[in-house]
């Protein structure tokens, strides 16, 4: 466990860039949206709701891929076991997810209090994925980080362990499965039923429940893959 903590600290040695990228990109996205919708003030048809919040999740997704392609060979080269690397990496990433979710939650509260930064802008709070319970709302910010992060870790590990052939196999398999399902659904005329199912899910289920259910098996499989991966 000590070594896992060491790995977690090791990944923060250049912390300004670790923290700077996600928040820098998010700030940029926010400012552009703010300027854009401020300029469109007065147009009654405009509903200032944006998906700009996704930028921080995308940056963290990419950061997770980098931890496997870049930090993993470095840490192993320094003399860390795969188990310690994995635990430490999960630890530092979970800490970031929790911390960032807390900040996003606060920003969403401020957004409501200021009536959308004075221009009814919905940037941090998403109206169509509304969660009332404060704990669930906090988790609704945190869990998507974890799900995307572990998807990134799992994909990068497939590349690390099985190389380009592994990636091609994975892509081919994904194509067959997704394409096959789409064909099946279209053929059976299930699209409206699926749309209805999604519409029936609460915001909490979509942001917390399902991501948690998907994250756990991904984390377990990633651990098994990394144990035989070479740097």
């Amino acid at each position: 466990m000590n070594r896992a903590l060491t790995v977690a600290r090791l990944q923060f040695v250049a912390w300004p860039s670790v923290v700077g990228w996600p928040w820098g990109i998010l700030a940029l996205s926010f400012l552009i949206n703010l300027a854009l919708f401020a300029a469109m003030q007065g147009d009654p048809n405009v509903q200032p709701t944006t998906g700009g919040l996704a930028s921080i999740y995308v940056v963290m997704f990419i950061a997770c891929i980098n931890t496997i392609t870049q930090d993993f060979p470095f840490a192993l080269g320094l003399g860390v076991s795969r188990r310690s690397f994995y635990l430490g990496n999960v630890l530092q990433f979970a800490a970031q997810a929790i911390g960032y979710a807390a900040v996003l939650y606060l920003l969403a509260v401020v957004e409501e209090a200021t009536d959308g930064w004075g221009i009814q802008l919905r940037f941090f709070g998403l109206p169509y994925l509304w969660v009332e319970n404060p704990v669930l709302r906090f988790l609704g910010f945190a869990l998507p980080f974890l799900l995307l992060g572990f998807i990134g870790i799992a994909i990068a590990l497939v590349f690390k362990r099985w190389g380009a052939n592994g990636m091609l196999t994975l892509s081919a398999a994904a194509l067959v499965v997704i394409g096959g399902l789409a064909t099946l659904v279209t053929w059976q005329g299930w699209w409206s039923a699926i749309g209805g199912w999604f519409a029936d899910q609460s915001g909490a289920a979509l942001l917390v429940g399902w991501p948690a259910l998907l994250t756990l098996p991904l984390a377990a499989v990633s651990y098994l893959v990394i144990r035989r991966a070479t740097p």
Binding site: V13, A14, F74
Partner: peptide
Amino acid sequence: YPSNLRVHHVLRAARLV
């Protein structure tokens, strides 16, 4: 080495390990 590290970062990482 990870692309965001400077020389002194690498040394600090090695010191940790």
